[in-house]
Amino acid sequence: MKLSSRVSWFLLAFGVWSWIIWITFVKNLWKDGSGLAFDDAGDPTAYFWVHLTLAVVSFLLGTGVGLIGFRSVRRLREEAAGDAAAVGSRTANE
């Protein structure tokens, strides 16, 4: 399946956004001082594990979506370069 340039760039941007958001989220979760993520003894709570799982799964899905967008953008650029080279060789032969 061939994706449009707009969709390809959106998917790539979504992947980058996921990296920024979910890595930041995990850092903040790890430093949580409100008592939600860690109990008084410093042990992780169920809140911590649920949100860490959510973050890891979302990060992996975002990475997959970003890779699809990256591959599609790269393919579109290669096709555009190939088309430009074909046009250039046709005009040189005429």
Rank of each mutant, 00 (worst) to 15 (best):
V57L: 04
M1I: 09
L11F: 05
G66F: 00
G42I: 06
E94V: 11
W9C: 04
R77G: 03
V50W: 15
S34F: 11
V26S: 02
T53N: 11
F59C: 12
S72R: 02
I21M: 12
R71S: 07
P44M: 11
W19H: 12
W22R: 14
R71L: 12
S8P: 04
F14Y: 14
A80M: 04
V16F: 03
A46T: 15
D40R: 10
A80N: 03
P44E: 10
K31N: 15
W17T: 13
R90K: 03
E94L: 12
D40S: 15
W49T: 13
N28A: 01
W19Y: 11
P44Q: 07
G15T: 06
W22P: 10
D32T: 05
T45I: 07
L29I: 09
F70S: 07
L12E: 00
A55Y: 08
V57D: 05
V50Q: 14
A81T: 01
S18R: 08
G88P: 02
G82C: 02
F25A: 13
A46K: 15
L67W: 00
E94P: 05
E78T: 02
M1W: 09
L76M: 00
A80S: 06
G42Q: 08
F14M: 13
W49H: 15
A92K: 08
L54Q: 12
W17E: 10
L52D: 11
G33E: 15
W22H: 13
D32W: 14
W9I: 01
E94I: 11
G35V: 03
V57C: 05
G33M: 13
V73M: 05
A84H: 03
E94G: 12
V56G: 15
A86F: 07
V56F: 15
F10L: 14
L36T: 11
I23G: 10
A84F: 04
A37Y: 12
R90L: 09
N93V: 15
G69H: 02
A46P: 06
I20E: 12
D83I: 00
L67E: 04
S58I: 04
A80K: 09
F70V: 04
R77Q: 06
V57W: 01
A80E: 03
T53F: 10
T63G: 11
G62Y: 01
F25R: 14
V26D: 03
V87R: 01
L36G: 07
A92C: 08
R6I: 13
S72H: 00
L67G: 05
G66M: 05
V16I: 15
L3N: 02
S58C: 06
F10H: 11
T63M: 05
L76I: 00
L67S: 06
